[in-house]
Each structure stands twice: as structure tokens, then as C-alpha cells.
């Protein structure tokens, strides 16, 4: 459809491949996206190619037309859409959930420490009459104390670094579910004092607060975030567009690979 004789991109003339590459580089230069080396190559090519000199003028003119084209003011949608934004309670809820989680973490850590000390003092007196799966009572108590302490630390860490909290919740949920069933059975059979079972409620509170923190949204600056990578797309340059495939890499393309 091109008018005959009108600065064609002429793949048939001797400058064909260079012209395509040069025009891509000139286009980038018009947008301030070409570096000095590329600019020098453009200038070298333009020195001997009238068609590309003409193209450069036309491309610049078209670009100016597009950039300066006046358009209507567009609608003012502020009042119509602002209600879709998160409500003011969101921030307060997030902050209070984190504070609550930290408090629960502290309580849980104290419980863990207390049971650890208790286990340590009782271990001397015990002679371990019951061995279950290779662990005596004393060791089983140590394990429990270690878990309680670890959970307290996990809650505290989750309150500080909320980004890691979501990964903790499935583990906690499973732990609490199993513990609830076993505690119920033990209570009925009289194998545990109610006070001990009540102390497990701290775990439930931690789980619920953790859920609330996760649901109140991410906070900035609390560790690397998944999904951050898309903002830095790979630097590969000449990717299959829908245009004609080019015969071989030209200096222009290699240059733009770096860009």
C-alpha cells in the first residue's frame, strides 16, 4: 500500500537490514531510550541513507502529533469509586491484631519456659517407669516444653515479620485440631487437669490473631515479598513480535539485547 518511491524500508535495497535496525534505534532515541553508542550508530547510518533521514523526520512528527493531541477532560470518578477502597477500620484491626499476637506469643513463651523449668527439676527425681516409643516421661515432657516455647517464639516472630505468618498457619491449625481432639478424650478419661487444657486456649488465640493479621493485608518492609519479580522483567530484547522475522542478528539487535 505504500506510495511508490516514498522512503521505503526497502528490504530489497542494499541497506535493508540496517534500515530496519536503525529505525528501531531511532524510535528508541525519540523516547530517550537509546544510549550514546546507539546514537552514534544511528548518525553513521543516517549519513548515507536519505530514506532513513526522511523516516526520522516523519516519525518525529507523528510522535509529536500523538503526544500533543488534545483530548477531553475525562470523567471525575472519585466520589463514585472511593467507597471501594479499604475502610478506615482496616489499619486499626491490623495493628491491634499484631499487638494481640505479640502478647499471646509472650504468654506462650512464658508457659513454655515454665514447663521447661518444671520438667528440668522433675527429671532428677524421676526414674522413668514408662517408656513410650523410646522416650521416658521426662523426655516427652522436654519435647512438649520445647514445642510450647517454639510456638511462643513463632507467634512473636509472626507479629514482627508478618510476611512469614501465612506459612505458619496451616501447621498451627493442624496442631490445634489434633490437640483439641486428644484433650477432649483425655479430659473425659481423667488423664489431664482442666487447668492444663485451658492453657491450650492460648494457642487457639494465637492462631485466630495470626489469621486476623494475615487477612488485614501485607505491610511494607517486612521481608522480601513473593511476586516482586514481575517488576523487573528479564532484559531479553528482540523477542518474537508478530512482525516479519529478520534474517540474522544485526549489530542493532545485539546492541538492543544489552538495553
Amino acid at each position: 500500500m505504500r506510495v511508490a518511491g516514498n522512503h521505503g524500508a526497502g528490504r530489497d535495497d542494499q541497506h535493508g537490514v540496517d534500515c530496519d535496525g536503525c529505525r528501531e534505534a531511532m524510535s528508541a532515541a525519540l523516547d530517550g531510550e537509546a544510549d550514546a553508542a546507539e546514537q552514534a550508530r544511528i548518525d553513521a547510518h543516517l549519513g548515507g541513507c536519505a530514506a532513513c533521514r526522511s523516516w526520522q523526520r516523519d516519525a518525529a512528527l507523528v510522535t509529536r502529533h500523538v503526544r500533543t493531541a488534545a483530548v477531553g477532560a475525562g470523567p471525575d470518578l472519585v466520589d463514585r469509586v472511593v467507597d471501594a477502597a479499604p475502610a478506615a477500620s482496616v489499619r486499626w484491626r491490623g495493628v491491634s491484631a499484631r499487638a494481640g499476637l505479640a502478647a499471646v506469643g509472650l504468654a506462650q513463651a512464658v508457659l513454655g519456659l515454665v514447663s521447661l523449668l518444671g520438667a528440668a527439676t522433675h527429671a532428677h527425681a524421676m526414674t522413668d517407669p514408662f517408656m513410650v516409643l523410646g522416650a521416658g516421661m521426662a523426655h516427652a515432657t522436654h519435647e512438649t516444653a520445647a514445642w510450647n516455647l517454639a510456638l511462643g517464639v513463632a507467634f512473636l516472630g509472626g507479629a514482627l515479620f508478618t510476611r512469614h505468618l501465612a506459612g505458619l498457619l496451616p501447621v498451627l491449625g493442624a496442631f490445634i485440631a489434633v490437640l483439641a481432639v486428644l484433650s477432649g478424650l483425655d479430659l473425659v478419661a481423667g488423664r489431664v487437669e482442666p487447668g492444663r487444657v485451658v492453657s491450650h486456649l492460648v494457642l487457639v488465640a494465637g492462631f485466630l490473631l495470626g489469621l486476623a493479621v494475615v487477612r488485614s493485608g501485607p505491610r511494607p518492609g517486612t521481608g522480601p515479598s513473593p511476586g516482586a519479580r514481575w517488576w523487573r522483567p528479564g532484559g531479553r530484547s528482540v523477542v518474537a513480535d508478530d512482525g516479519p522475522t529478520r534474517p540474522a542478528p544485526t549489530p542493532w539487535e545485539r546492541e538492543s539485547d544489552v538495553a
Binding site: 506510495v3 531510550e33 516519525a59 512482525g243 538492543s256
Partner: peptide, 27 residues
């Protein structure tokens, strides 16, 4: 980043769009 494609793809698409516009208006 908006198109989730490499920078080079933007570069070549912009250049081809410009070439198309120059051709269209030269017609």
C-alpha cells in the same frame, strides 16, 4: 512491567507502531 513482557518487546513494538503510522499517513 505493565504488559509483563521484556523491555525489548516494548522497544520493537513501539518502533513498529511508529513505522506503521508513518506508512499509514504517507498513504
Amino acid at each position: 512491567a505493565v504488559c509483563r513482557c521484556p523491555i525489548g518487546t516494548i522497544r520493537s513494538r513501539v518502533a513498529r507502531a511508529r513505522a506503521d503510522l508513518v506508512d499509514a499517513l504517507a498513504d
